[in-house]
Each structure stands twice: as structure tokens, then as C-alpha cells.
Amino acid sequence: MSTILIIFCVLAAITLSTAFLTIFSRNPIHSALYLVICFFSIAGHYLLLNSQFLAIMHLIVYSGAIMILFLFTIMLMNLNKENEVHKPRITRLGAIVSFCLICIVLILVFINSKPIIGEYVHTGEDYQSIKVLGHVLLNEYMVPFEFASILLLVAMIGAVLLSKKEKTGK
């Protein structure tokens, strides 16, 4: 087995196990921290695929910003076992059934889909370099890039508006 394969297996094991622990752990802070570890291992996958920029951006945005805000809110809310919501049995049953249905659909999709690995062509360009990435992003994919930034701006303004509304409502 090559080194990269071993690293991939270890990373994949960490990713999957922490993702499951995120759902299974009772303590909300623990599950948030498991999610952070999960994000770290996903950044490791990006590094294995030779994309430094994506890996570090993933770390900055998800682990460095979003998850810290998550932790913040959870810590300040001080969730205990007492105020855990108890769902009625019929809801749980419905959740299990719908999960199984989605699983069947997903498995069928994976069986019927044709893998296209091996069709990638090596163009010789160094996509690790952010210079190449910037050129591609701002020339070929200029319009989607600008649309994404407008979308983010709108979301930001929306978030500010929502928080303002609450204040004046009181």
C-alpha cells in the first residue's frame, strides 16, 4: 500500500467516525467539537488532492469562523439534559422510515451512476498556485464568481436586517 492510500484511509476513518459522533453525542458542545475535527480531516483530504488553497480556506471559513460562532452560541445557551426536547414516538418512527427511503434512493443512484474517474486530463498547469487559480476564477468563471459575491452580500444584509427587526419589535 502506498503512503497516500494509508493517509487517505486514516483520514477517511477520522472523517466518518467524527461525523457519526457529531450526531450521536448527547452533549451539544461535544458534537460541535467533533464537527470541528471532521472539518479538519476534510481539509486533510483537500491537501491530499493537491489543493492547498481550498484546504486553508476551508479551515479559515468553517473551523475558524462558523464553528467558533456555533460554539459561542451553544456555550452561552447552556443546554442541559433537562431542557432536551422529547419527540413523540410517531415522529421518531417517521424519521426512521424516511431515512431508510433516502438510503435506498442514494444506494440506487450510486449503483446506476457511471464513475468518470480516469477522464481527467493533465493539462500541465499548476493548480496549487493561487496565481493560476485567480486567473481562472476571474477570467473564465467571472460571472458566477460575481454572482456568488452578490449572493453573499444579500445574505449579509438580510442577516443584519433580521437582527435589527427583533430589536425594534421589543
Binding site: 486553508i56 473551523s63 467558533i68
Partner: peptide, 25 residues
Amino acid sequence: DIDIALLYIIGILSIGVYGIMIGGW
């Protein structure tokens, strides 16, 4: 000497917050 050294520094800085938050909590 990585291509994204400055981003790396910012990334590590943002992760450093975890040490304080986890310890305090």
C-alpha cells in the same frame, strides 16, 4: 515555503481561539 503562507497564518490564528474557548468552558 508554501504558496499560501499568509493565509496559513490567518488560518492558524483563527484556530487559536479554540484553545481559549475550550479551556474556559
